[in-house]
Computed example of a mutant assay.
Amino acid sequence: MSVPLVAIPCDIREIEGNVWQATPNQYVRAAVKGADVMVFLVPAQENGHDFDGILDRVDGLLVSGSRTNVHPSLYGAQATEADGPFDPARDATTLPLIRRAIERGIPLLAICRGIQELNVALGGTLANDIQDTPGIWDHRKPDVPELDEAYGIRQNVIVKEGSCLAAAVGPGEIQVNSLHRQAISRTAPRLAVEALAEDGTIEAVSVIDSKAFAVGVQWHPEYWVGTDGTSNKLFKAFGDAVRDYAARKQHTSEKAGAA
């Protein structure tokens, strides 16, 4: 069997006047090295996608973090300037891809903006600038020049026993690098809360009754793949699910060819 292929939707970026389709290399690197898969970058478009055509060609979906936020209109809220920046092309790409991947039983790992997209795609809402809420910590990325320090593992998260995430990384307390100013507010009906920060912020979810691995985390396991045990375990679990899906897909194809 060939190396499985995982789709990563892109962001729209403007660089020196040119519009780029882009994704941070840390996600590509983590998929290749941590999950042992190859990567297919999906362009962000506001219309024109054939979502089933994309998913026919891949064995998993990895939804990355981003500097942009899901547009509040997509979860029934009024948008303000403070809620941005926005990327409508990414929203129009990721939300349908997430829903269709879940329907088809294609393994899914959603990170940072990805967990927020997963929640919105399935009917949940988001809270902005959570650090202004009494009792909630400041989860934002530290304003330091060194990325290793900015993405440092410094926050405790409690993983629910018996959860999908616990099967991958173990139950109880783990340490993560959670960097965000938005978070899940109302959890989508199809999502189960898998992990909480000590201040009660939702840090991980899974899709209830999913046909395959379908997990979202608010932190950044992709950054420390190769050196952090929890990050490695999560990407390995995703990679194992992708390989299992690819093997089943190939077996079905071979049976159909022999018929």
Rank of each mutant, 00 (worst) to 15 (best):
V242R: 01
S2T: 13
A35Q: 04
A247Y: 09
L109N: 01
Q131S: 11
D59S: 11
N47Y: 15
P145M: 12
D59A: 05
A188G: 07
A247T: 14
H180M: 10
N25Y: 15
D50C: 03
L165V: 05
D240P: 01
R57Q: 14
I8A: 05
I111P: 00
M1T: 11
V39I: 13
L126N: 04
C112A: 12
G216I: 06
D52Q: 11
I115P: 01
R90Q: 10
P43K: 12
K141V: 05
R243A: 12
Q175N: 13
H180D: 06
T227K: 14
K233V: 03
G152V: 07
E46Q: 13
T94L: 02
Q175P: 00
N25W: 12
E16V: 01
H49F: 12
V70Q: 07
D59C: 01
A30H: 03
A101M: 04
D59K: 00
G53W: 10
G76F: 15
D244F: 02
I102A: 01
A212C: 08
V70G: 03
P171N: 11
L62A: 07
L5G: 05
I12Q: 14
D36V: 02
L122M: 11
G226W: 13
D52N: 14
N18S: 12
A121R: 00
S210W: 06
A258H: 12
A22Y: 14
R104Y: 13
E103N: 04
A121P: 03
C112G: 06
T187N: 02
I54P: 04
E222H: 03
T252S: 06
A167V: 00
D59M: 02
L165Y: 06
E14Q: 12
R13D: 08
S185M: 11
G226E: 14
D11E: 14
L118S: 04
H220F: 10
L179S: 03
E16W: 10
R113Y: 12
Q218H: 13
L165A: 07
Q218K: 06
N69R: 08
L108I: 12
H220L: 09
P88I: 09
G162D: 14
T23R: 01
L165Q: 05
E203T: 00
G135V: 11
P24L: 08
S163N: 14
L122T: 08
S231V: 09
K141C: 10
Q155P: 00
P189T: 13
I130E: 10
L234R: 02
G60A: 09
V42Y: 09
Q218P: 04
R186V: 08
A92E: 13
G34Y: 05
F213M: 06
L165I: 05
